[in-house]
């Protein structure tokens, strides 16, 4: 079983706590790192990679001081180390321009609008996690309780017994 991490990036502390609280159930098996800025997230991600662990999912706020969420995710996207990392953008105000940039350059996997619903966020993260685990060829069985079973069934159409 590998060490997987979910990264949360949100500059407003109260909001960050709220996201972390919603995603609590993932902490049974997966590390959740809370970051208050893109720069902090970058350094945490570097440490994770240096330990040989995986960054499975990033949930990032959009509008943040210094480096905003889209720019941060664009940089993640261009880094081959994170080519399988799934990216969720949490956004309160997305203009047409931002959306285009996020999709074209950052390869965002999912857009969530603020205020979000807990079930929505949990489903999004579990879907992204399922994709990450199966695409990375990691053993999915230890994590089944956290995964999106519909995606799991579709993706395992060619699986074999081990």
């Amino acid at each position: 079983m590998e060490n997987l991490t979910i990264i949360l990036v949100e500059d407003q502390r109260e909001v960050l706590q709220a996201i972390a609280k919603d995603l609590e159930k993932f902490e049974e098996l997966i590390r959740i790192e809370e970051c208050e800025s893109a720069a902090e997230a970058e350094s945490v991600m570097k440490q994770i990679i240096d330990r040989g662990d995986y960054v499975a999912v990033i949930v990032s706020d959009h509008v943040m001081p210094n480096k905003n969420g889209v720019d941060f995710l664009i940089e993640v996207n261009t880094n081959p180390t994170f080519k399988r990392t799934r990216k969720i953008l949490l956004t309160a105000l997305a203009t047409h321009q931002d959306t285009i940039q996020a999709i074209n350059k950052a390869n965002i996997d999912l857009y969530l609008e603020k205020p979000w619903k807990k079930e929505e966020l949990v489903l999004a993260v579990s879907t992204m996690l399922t994709h990450f685990i199966l695409d990375s060829g990691l053993a999915y069985t230890p994590y089944v309780s956290l995964l999106n079973s519909e995606i799991l069934f579709t993706k395992l159409r060619n699986a074999s017994d081990v």
Binding site: R13, L16, Q17, E33, E34, C35, E36, E40, V44
Partner: peptide, 11 residues
């Protein structure tokens, strides 16, 4: 005070 530590300190 809410959380008196920032995310880095918590980590």
């Amino acid at each position: 005070g809410g959380l008196s530590f920032n995310s880095q300190q918590i980590r």
